[in-house]
Simulated scan of single mutants.
Amino acid sequence: MARVKPKRHGVITDMTAMCDVAFLLLTFFILTTQFKKPDVEQIKPPSSISEKLLPDASLMTINATPDGKFYFQPVDNASERVALLDKMGQRYGITFDNNQKAAFRKIQAIGVPMNKLKGFLDMSEDEQKNYKSPTGIPMDSTNKQLIDWVKESLSVNPEYKLAIKGDVTTEYPKVKSLFEGLRDIDFLKFWLITSQEGKPNE
């Protein structure tokens, strides 16, 4: 005698709760993610297999372009940025007004000599983003303004860390003066920014 097959019932899964959770997670990540600021000039760093990550806080950055121009990116702390600007102004005998200090709080990177910084800060934000410095910050044996930016930053907060991002085509003699300047102020520990490369097959 044939067995009676039980009637099959379709399984209905309520996905409402999962959709709510996915939407909440998506919203959380969008609101809390810090987007990387674009470089002031196109820089392609050399590749490496290092997996070490840069610290998120208290990090100042030096960018070296293929033609050897230097840009300095201060730490993202508004009050400490103003203190840094005041110290650089005292060193070079320059006074900055409140509007220029407000612009410096929001600036992405500095790529002009000190004698042109006031004019750069007086530009609109769009003009600053589109401005391509012909010289960058001076850094050679006779003019070490870039080292002064690092030195005065450390006088604002000795806990600052430094990362250097150079283009893969930047020639070593262009950055040799930077390394020598950092050595002269006894600042010997810093990161070199590289792009991730796959590990070689063993």
Rank of each mutant, 00 (worst) to 15 (best):
Q196P: 12
L59N: 08
I193F: 09
S48Q: 03
L162D: 08
K37I: 12
K7E: 12
I164F: 11
T142W: 00
V21H: 11
I49R: 09
Q145V: 04
V175Q: 06
M1G: 15
D56E: 14
R8E: 10
A102T: 08
N99A: 14
T169S: 15
I94C: 02
T170F: 00
S177E: 15
R91K: 15
K165I: 01
K151I: 02
T65D: 01
M88A: 04
M139K: 06
S124I: 01
T135Q: 11
Q108E: 13
Q128F: 01
Q145S: 03
K52M: 09
F190H: 15
R8L: 13
C19V: 15
E159I: 13
L188H: 14
N115T: 15
G89E: 03
K189A: 10
W191A: 10
P45V: 03
A109F: 07
L154P: 03
K69D: 06
V150S: 01
D186G: 12
D140F: 07
F187D: 01
P134C: 05
D97I: 10
G111S: 07
T194V: 07
P74W: 03
D56K: 12
P173C: 07
G166M: 05
F179Y: 15
Y160W: 05
N130L: 08
V156W: 00
I185A: 11
F187V: 02
F96W: 03
F120T: 11
Y71D: 08
L25N: 09
F120E: 14
D39N: 12
S47L: 04
G10V: 04
